[in-house]
């Protein structure tokens, strides 16, 4: 099922993975699967290709199917290619009460994509997600490891413009907050 690409963690990431595996009792290293999938997603362009998942299986010495079934269960793992900045807008209760639908529509118009899609230039993917535990500062969105709260449409514009200008990939495992 693997693609041609060769997957290998950097020495630093491998050291982190090994440190994580030591947190569990002998024989229970599978517990490290979710944390290591996060490392893999951050290192391999923001998504988990079959090749990347097979590589994680080999590190943990488990069957590839054990990785696929977990990766496909959790919403933070992308099983398709995504843009450099994955914009995740909370669409649940309090955010919805305070205008989350407007935020989503505004971004859809601005980026010419629908929720779930990626811009042609590969810069942005727009996702809608469920309550992110930031309801007192609604509406909000997450991008990479950072929360952007008390959104207004102007704030959203400034945020997307800055991100595009910086052109960097943003991942969950790092703080990389855009100052507005």
């Amino acid at each position: 099922m693997s693609d041609q690409k060769v997957y290998r963690f950097s020495d630093e990431t491998m050291a982190t993975a090994e440190r994580i595996m030591r947190r569990y009792p002998e024989g229970k290293q599978k517990s490290a699967l979710i944390p290591i999938l996060h490392l893999a997603q951050a290192e391999f362009e923001g998504w988990l290709s079959p090749g990347a998942m097979d590589y994680v299986a080999s590190i943990l010495n488990i069957k590839p199917i054990e990785v696929y079934e977990v990766a496909s269960f959790y919403s933070m793992f992308n099983l398709k290619q995504v843009g450099k900045c994955v914009i995740e807008v909370c669409r649940t209760s309090s955010c919805w009460l305070l205008g989350a639908e407007d935020v989503v529509r505004h971004i859809e118009k601005k980026l010419h994509i629908k929720a779930g899609e990626t811009t042609k230039d590969g810069m942005f993917t727009l996702k809608t997600v469920e309550c992110l535990g930031s309801c007192g500062t609604a509406p909000m969105l997450q991008c990479g490891g950072d929360f952007y709260e008390n959104l207004t449409l102007e704030k959203v514009d400034a945020l997307l413009d800055k991100m595009k200008e910086q052109g960097r990939r943003r991942v969950y495992t790092k703080d990389d907050m855009v100052e507005l």
Partner: peptide, 19 residues
């Protein structure tokens, strides 16, 4: 990694076991 159900205590334990 994003799943409301993992707040339920036995689902949480499954998840902590890498499932």
């Amino acid at each position: 990694a994003g799943a409301y159900i993992c707040g339920e205590e036995t689902a949480l334990l499954e998840s902590l076991e890498g499932k």
